[in-house]
């Protein structure tokens, strides 16, 4: 993941307490890699987030939690078509797996 430096800077600036990450990745595998990066740390162990467990709550924009919180018209306009084309179930499953791990990190911290 190339933009780890920017994410780390944003975390340094805003702190982890009130921060949520929302992803727009196109499939479960890529969602998993991104979710892992912002929770446990960079799985490739090479970027600025290698070994850095931010433990941030992470969601994919198509997950039901986000959809329910969003304005239905905006959701439809911006991502309605993607809800049809992407495998929302598999993506949600993968992202929620890391969200749970993030909670463990937070509890431990």
């Amino acid at each position: 993941m190339e933009d780890q430096g920017i994410i780390k800077d944003a975390v340094d600036k805003h702190g982890t307490e009130n921060l949520i990450v929302v992803l727009g990745t196109p499939d479960a595998e890529s969602a998993g890699i991104f979710a892992e990066t912002v929770t446990i740390g960079d799985p490739a162990f090479s970027g600025p987030l290698a070994g850095v467990s931010l433990g941030l709550p992470v969601y994919h924009v198509l997950e039901s939690e986000v959809k329910e919180a969003a304005d239905p018209d905006v959701f439809e306009e911006e991502v309605g078509m993607m809800e049809i084309s992407l495998d929302v179930e598999a993506i949600s499953k993968e992202v929620s797996r890391f969200r749970e791990k993030a909670e463990e990190i937070e509890d431990a911290g």
Binding site: N18, L23, P26, D27, L56, V61, V66, D71
Partner: peptide, 22 residues
């Protein structure tokens, strides 16, 4: 505060932003 990490072949950043703001 939300970090919107979009993808060109998935959902681009600006679309996530709008959903999050809403």
């Amino acid at each position: 505060k939300v970090l919107c990490i979009g993808e060109r072949d998935g959902i681009p950043g600006p679309s996530i932003e709008k959903v999050v703001e809403s």
